[in-house]
Amino acid sequence: MTTPLWRRAVLSIAMLALAAVVAVPLYYVLANTLKTQGEMVATPLGLPTSPVFSNYAEVLSDPRIYRSFANTLYVTVASVLLQLAVGALAAYAMVVRTSRFNRILASVLLIGFVVPGQSTLIPLYRTLVGFRLVDDLNGLVLLYLGGSIFCYFLVQGYIRTLPYELIEAARLDGAGDVQIFGRIVLPLIKPILVTVGIFQTMWVWNDFLLPTVIISSPEKRTIVLQVYNAVTEFTTNWPVFMTVSVVALVPMVVFFVFTQRHIASGLLAGSVKG
Rank of each mutant, 00 (worst) to 15 (best):
residue 207 D to H: 07
residue 199 F to P: 04
residue 214 I to P: 11
residue 214 I to F: 10
residue 205 W to G: 01
residue 197 G to P: 09
residue 208 F to S: 12
residue 211 P to L: 11
residue 198 I to L: 03
residue 210 L to A: 15
residue 181 F to T: 03
residue 211 P to Q: 09
residue 214 I to T: 12
residue 216 S to C: 04
residue 191 P to G: 06
residue 179 Q to F: 09
residue 199 F to Y: 13
residue 201 T to N: 03
residue 186 L to T: 07
residue 186 L to N: 04
residue 203 W to Y: 12
residue 196 V to I: 14
residue 188 L to F: 09
residue 200 Q to N: 12
residue 181 F to C: 04
residue 211 P to M: 09
residue 186 L to K: 04
residue 178 V to F: 13
residue 180 I to D: 00
residue 210 L to N: 13
residue 196 V to M: 14
residue 185 V to T: 12
residue 194 V to Q: 11
residue 180 I to Y: 00
residue 188 L to P: 09
residue 190 K to W: 12
residue 190 K to G: 07
residue 216 S to Y: 12
residue 183 R to V: 08
residue 217 S to M: 08
residue 213 V to R: 06
residue 202 M to T: 14
residue 199 F to K: 02
residue 196 V to K: 03
residue 186 L to M: 14
residue 204 V to M: 00
residue 177 D to Y: 15
residue 213 V to Q: 08
residue 189 I to L: 08
residue 188 L to W: 03
residue 216 S to I: 12
residue 184 I to G: 01
residue 181 F to P: 02
residue 187 P to I: 10
residue 178 V to A: 12
residue 215 I to N: 02
residue 203 W to D: 08
residue 203 W to M: 05
residue 210 L to T: 12
residue 180 I to V: 11
residue 211 P to H: 12
residue 178 V to W: 09
residue 201 T to L: 04
residue 204 V to S: 01
residue 187 P to S: 12
residue 191 P to C: 06
residue 178 V to R: 07
residue 215 I to A: 04
residue 188 L to E: 14
residue 196 V to S: 08
residue 197 G to Y: 03
residue 193 L to P: 10
residue 186 L to G: 01
residue 216 S to P: 02
residue 194 V to I: 15
residue 178 V to N: 00
residue 204 V to D: 00
residue 188 L to C: 10
residue 214 I to S: 06
residue 211 P to C: 11
residue 193 L to C: 15
residue 202 M to I: 15
residue 203 W to F: 09
residue 187 P to F: 11
residue 211 P to N: 08
residue 184 I to S: 00
residue 210 L to H: 13
residue 201 T to I: 02
residue 189 I to A: 08
residue 208 F to L: 15
residue 194 V to L: 15
residue 193 L to S: 13
residue 189 I to C: 10
residue 205 W to N: 01
residue 177 D to I: 11
residue 212 T to V: 14
residue 194 V to R: 09
residue 202 M to V: 15
residue 181 F to G: 02
residue 185 V to M: 08
residue 180 I to W: 00
residue 194 V to N: 11
residue 208 F to P: 05
residue 196 V to G: 06
residue 178 V to G: 00
residue 185 V to E: 02
residue 210 L to D: 12
residue 184 I to T: 03
residue 207 D to W: 04
residue 214 I to A: 07
residue 178 V to Q: 03
residue 192 I to W: 05
residue 192 I to R: 07
residue 179 Q to K: 14
residue 212 T to D: 05
residue 181 F to D: 02
residue 207 D to C: 08
residue 184 I to C: 01
residue 213 V to K: 06
residue 180 I to H: 00
residue 195 T to E: 02
residue 180 I to K: 00
residue 201 T to H: 05
residue 181 F to S: 02
residue 215 I to V: 14
residue 211 P to V: 13
residue 192 I to A: 10
residue 200 Q to W: 01
residue 217 S to H: 10
residue 211 P to W: 06
residue 212 T to S: 15
residue 197 G to L: 08
residue 210 L to V: 14
residue 206 N to R: 04
residue 193 L to M: 15
residue 193 L to H: 10
residue 191 P to L: 05
residue 206 N to C: 08
residue 198 I to P: 01
residue 207 D to V: 05
residue 196 V to W: 03
residue 191 P to V: 05
residue 193 L to N: 12
residue 194 V to C: 10
residue 213 V to C: 09
residue 189 I to S: 07
residue 195 T to Y: 02
residue 205 W to I: 05
residue 190 K to P: 05
residue 188 L to Q: 15
residue 184 I to P: 01
residue 216 S to V: 13
